[in-house]
Amino acid sequence: MRTDVVETIYRAALKDPNIFLITGDLEHSSAKNFKQNLPDQHINIGMAEQNMIGVAAGLALSGKKVFTISIITFATMRCFEQIRNDICYQNLDVTVIGDGGGFYYSKSGATHNPIEDIAIMRTLPNMKIIAPADSQQARLLTEKIIQSRGPFYLRLGGKVVPAIEELRADGQPEIEMGKGQVIHIGSDVTIFSFGPIIREALTAAEILASCGIRAEIINLHALKPIDRELIEDRFNRRQAIFTLEEHSVIGGLGSAVAEIICPLFHCHRRHSIFKSFGIKDKFTKTVGSRQYLWQINGLTGQQIANQIIASCTCI
């Protein structure tokens, strides 16, 4: 996914000398083209994330379109105040790309496993948050970001098999930034999700179908601004709403959806079920495969299907 994003930026940068890529000591192969062919538009800032964001702001204040990239914990947390004051407060055209969402670096430990990034980025005025679910989406959404104006936070984190774009059932010809995508049709309950863990939602949908529960799966690649209209619509039409995310249960997708639907419980006098599935408020100190870490956090398709079935029997 990182390669897809950087190559998309590279192709745009070939045509636009005002596009810059700043890497934080991640001289991965995806930045090779930049380094070799566009050395004046590429900076390896070294291990200095505060400076990375400050330099990006200075470039953007001079009319440049800047992308910064590093591992999420370094890219967003080490330099949070710089992102807040230098980028968002000044409303600059900078995209902070964070690689390794959730448990992507599943054997690297908690220092490399961001579970709070969306919560903290979501609090920043002017910041827009995009989290593609697979490589194709990453390319398409990066193109949209290039055509737009920042600030953006682009959260990357591995692939989904099969590709989301091939599953889409919303009838739209192409991805529309900010709009949710129906990738599995169902009319009883809706599960909102984003990123690679959405494949577990698809697994859950199959299990639920065998139990007579028709689950709709919606990919929300935009966490901010989020597709409020779609969420409100599904709240009004479904017996239950669920969210699934590879992020803390505090402040991420579940919180964003709750912020929209909680006032509706009162207005519509509804007694719908809402439950968010995410990483509990604790550091995961064991390592293993990504699937294993999902499992110990109760986030596999089977585990969430079980919880959804239990919830629905209460209706």
Binding site: G54, V55, G58
Partner: peptide
């Protein structure tokens, strides 16, 4: 030219401006 208030933000931004120039 830029906002400030928390210490240590101006010099990195100035570096970015120098690179842009």
């Amino acid at each position: 030219e830029s906002s400030a208030g928390s210490g240590g933000h101006g010099l990195p931004m100035a570096v970015g401006m120098a690179l842009a120039a």
